[in-house]
Amino acid sequence: MFEARLLRGSILKKVLEAIKDLLTQATFDCDDSGIQLQAMDNSHVSLVSLQLRADGFDKYRCDRNISMGMNLNSVAKILKCAGDKDTVTMKAQDNADTVTFVFESPNQEKVSDYEMKLMNLDLEHLGIPETEYSCTIRMPSAEFARICRDLSQFGDSMVIACTKEGVKFSATGEIGSANIKLAQTASVDKEEEAVIIEMDEPVTLTFACQYLNYFTKATSLSPQVQLSMSADVPLVVEYRIQDIGHIRYYLAPKIED
């Protein structure tokens, strides 16, 4: 028996919004530590890694490890039926071919359940090595979303250059060029609003705007985002989900021909 109950059901709604444009299907791997999902987009340029820890749920039971392959469009449709303040419970029997989502309104006066067929997915699973990154940038997630949106008007690619002075986002295209420089916040009153840079080596990398814009669908999950970069390796864009886990996106860089 698998059962995971979350009073803050809107978290699951937001998680689906954060992955459904990038992934069409994915496997939710559940064990007694929690729920994990790892999947690449169709073109194998980016990867989503989601972790929701068991202790972040209001009730969590997983008697046997269970892998549930799901069509994410279908899951998103079902979760759209949940109210923002609803409690969401996911349930499945051992070896089941369906999963059930139960939504309860705060006053318990409305209870809905949706049963969905599971899929057998044979998806490639990548081993992501532990990496010490040369630069990590923490910044408000809404600011990052704004920068990605603004710069994608100028070109398909965005250059992210991190030095000890700050971080510069640039794009160039037919209409011209755009540069956005963020300096490290001098004094931090509210950590959520700060730009904090940790740098061992300066790094400049180029990424596809389209994927960065997909990643920013996670903005409502966290007030801050962390970008981790080293030369010639994928970028990591991490949104921490309060008290329960994180969603990380990996994006392969564009390399000069």
Partner: peptide, 14 residues
Amino acid sequence: LHSQESLPVFFNDA
């Protein structure tokens, strides 16, 4: 000009 790398170039199959 830049060309897009693919992710499995960096990460091994688990």
